[in-house]
Simulated assay, not measured.
Amino acid sequence: MEILLEEFYKTDINLEKFHDRKIFIGEKSYQINGITKSGKSILVKNYLLSLKKNSYLYIDCSDIRIQTDKLNSSLTSFCNKNRIDVLVLDNYIPSIKFVNVSQLIITSEIHYKFDMLKTLQLFPLDYEEFLAYEHKYDSSALNHFFQLGGFPIMHKIYSDERNIYLQKTLKYSLQEMEFDILCFCAKMMSQKVSAFTIYERLKHIRKISKDKLYKSFDTLHKKNYIHLLEKANHPKATKKVYLCDISLKSALSLDKHFGRLFENMIYLELLKSGVESFYEDGIDFYLPSNDEIILGMPFADERTLFKKMEAIEAFIFSYGIKKVTAVTMNREGSVNHPFSKVEMLPFDIWVLGD
């Protein structure tokens, strides 16, 4: 194992042009959580390149040459001998023991409870981060975002290979049951779905254990491959399911419902902004802290929005809603309403406006 550690230590880190993310690594010790291909390794490597070469040790724990017991017995002495200040355990596995260094960084899909590590949650690119990859920002940028989604690697994959690349990547990263559930969730994007519903559907096409399915569904949620949205003031009601990235819809499903894709995209932006949201029947997103409703209406006009306002007026009055925003593809406008400020905003303006 000493020979392998020496190889890790001497190997130069190579990184193409780095695009800044909305989270960054400082001097503390961290665990960086995120789904596969969200950019965890690139973020860490960019940080390491700012340090002196002999001050850090980078270990990718998925390397099949690593024997955990031998690594645990030799890592401390190796770090002491080479005066390692920063140790990175990329794709960390719990059987690897920590050593005493100035800064420890681990990356993982799963969040572990380590009091000594500050948690950084890395999602796929949001729209603002995506724009950093564009050669120029014009009206085509949003359409490009729909095509590629938020995985940084997709900018390097040919268009005819993207779906197969995502399928292979997800199959490698997930258990078989998890992958099957994710495929089902791709069909049900932006709709109300429960683990029981998935069980009832899948049991007809494969032998399946309810307990295993429930556990796999929970794991997918904890890893943030899927996100679940509660109904306002009804925590036990069936939740709506959203995918971690819009690119998974076309990669895992033949369904082409653009409205649901657009709604999922809005949800991810709300999620990454940290704003608490809920759904209600006929209402995509209710933001109680802002007394606001967000509606995904990609091709709406003032007349369509006016009819929508009539349908949800009871909720607006009951909950004291002060603002209603209909997010569209490119339409901008407003509707007069006695209780709330009602406007239509194109997606890019809504996202970047603040």
Rank of each mutant, 00 (worst) to 15 (best):
D218K: 11
A326W: 10
F258G: 03
S340Y: 05
L104W: 10
Q67H: 12
F315K: 10
K118C: 02
L345D: 01
K272L: 09
G39F: 01
Y58H: 02
K236Q: 14
V88S: 07
L295H: 11
E161L: 13
K203F: 09
D20Q: 12
A300R: 03
N163E: 14
L142H: 02
P124I: 04
D180H: 08
E343K: 13
K17W: 11
G333W: 10
P124Y: 04
E343C: 09
Y56T: 09
D85M: 05
M1G: 03
H337C: 06
K113H: 09
I66Q: 04
E313Y: 09
D348L: 07
Q121R: 13
C61W: 08
I84L: 10
I246R: 06
H204K: 15
F78T: 01
K231E: 15
I208E: 12
F315L: 03
L120M: 09
E178M: 04
K171G: 01
Y133C: 11
F317I: 15
V99Q: 09
Q191F: 00
H227C: 00
D85F: 08
I208T: 03
L345M: 15
F123K: 11
K156G: 00
N82M: 12
K10G: 00
Y92D: 01
T107P: 13
V335C: 13
I349S: 08
A141R: 03
I32E: 09
M116V: 10
D291F: 12
I321W: 10
T68F: 12
R83Y: 14
Q31P: 10
E263V: 01
I181P: 07
E302W: 08
E332R: 15
K45I: 02
I208S: 00
Y127D: 06
C61A: 11
F130W: 10
T76D: 14
R303M: 12
M344I: 08
L174M: 04
A237E: 12
V342T: 03
K323S: 02
E134T: 06
S250A: 11
I316M: 14
I93P: 06
K307D: 15
I66Y: 03
M329G: 02
I13F: 07
K97P: 00
D115L: 10
Y30K: 07
K203E: 14
R303F: 14
L104R: 05
P124W: 07
A195Y: 11
K212I: 07
E128I: 07
K10V: 00
S62R: 10
Y112G: 06
I96C: 03
T328E: 06
K81A: 06
D69K: 13
D301Y: 10
L254K: 12
F262L: 06
K210D: 10
I208Q: 08
K212C: 01
D60I: 01
L352H: 07
H221Y: 14
C185L: 05
S140A: 06
Y319V: 01
F146L: 13
V88C: 06
M344R: 04
V241P: 11
I157E: 08
V342P: 08
F146P: 04
E161H: 07
I84N: 06
T325N: 08
L142C: 04
L202F: 06
V327I: 14
T76Q: 13
E128H: 04
D180Y: 11
H204I: 07
